Computed example of a mutant assay.
Amino acid sequence: MSRSQWLRAALLAAPGLILAGFGVFHPAPLEVDTAQWWTTLHVLLLPVFPLLAAAQWVLLTGAPMVLRWAGRVAAFGFAAFYGGLDAVAGIAAGTVAHTQHVVGPVTFAVFGIGDTLGYIGAACFLAANAVIVAAIALRVGWRVLPGAVLLLAASVSFLDSHIFWPRGVVTMVAVAAGMFLLSVYVTASPRMSVRQTSFGQP
């Protein structure tokens, strides 16, 4: 890998690693004593989760147009809906618990809508990563396998793990590793098509 490829790979892996770091300090479950930190943590997380969508956007560079835009629409869905989870089940729920000094019915109602938004967002994340793997596999064949296995397994885990310790943290590390490995095969031009290279060749 060239220096620029190493830099790109590191940048694409960075969001997952940052989220894994936050996950180590993520309280679970929400309690009155941790409500203030719960709120603050999710404020800090708001700008970080969209960076995963940005990484997906870059990994779709060079994909056939249909796959590229399908993946990018899914990445946008992840950023939008998962941001809703952070705002509702994170900031709002923590604020309610801290203000009312109880984790009660109102907090649970807030969690209900937040969980729905989060599941939709996580499903979009999985869909975008599946498109990324398919697009890269069209160009490089079985060489996509190590990164693909890590990224797709982590995406399935992410459906219900969030970034909670320990599984959520491991999930985010796997996301980072998968994106790092797949970044090697990102082409410079979004106009790259399957006809421009034979299957299994870069």
Rank of each mutant, 00 (worst) to 15 (best):
L150D: 09
A134M: 05
A80H: 02
A109W: 07
L145T: 14
L117N: 06
V144M: 05
G112K: 14
V140I: 13
L126M: 05
H162A: 14
I136H: 00
A92Q: 09
A92V: 13
P166I: 12
C124V: 08
F164Q: 11
Y119E: 10
A130K: 07
G83T: 10
Y119P: 06
D160M: 06
I132K: 04
Y119C: 12
G121K: 04
F164P: 04
V106M: 14
D115N: 12
S161M: 06
D115R: 13
I113A: 13
L151T: 11
V103N: 14
I136L: 05
L138V: 03
I120A: 00
L117S: 09
G83R: 08
V102K: 15
F78E: 03
G83V: 09
C124N: 12
G114Y: 12
G90W: 08
V102A: 15
F81M: 10
R143D: 00
L138R: 08
A153F: 07
A87D: 07
A127N: 01
L126C: 02
F78L: 01
A93T: 02
L126N: 02
A80I: 06
H98W: 14
D86W: 05
V144K: 00
T95L: 05
V106D: 13
V110Q: 06
L159H: 02
Y82Q: 02
F81E: 02
A153V: 12
A135S: 15
G118H: 00
I163W: 10
A97M: 03
L138A: 06
A130P: 05
V103I: 10
G147S: 02
G94A: 01
G121F: 07
P166S: 12
D86G: 13
V144D: 01
F81V: 08
T107P: 05
I132Y: 02
G104H: 01
G84E: 09
L117P: 01
A153D: 08
A135L: 06
S157N: 10
F125C: 04
D86P: 03
I163G: 08
H101F: 12
V144I: 07
S155F: 01
L152W: 04
A123C: 15
V106Q: 13
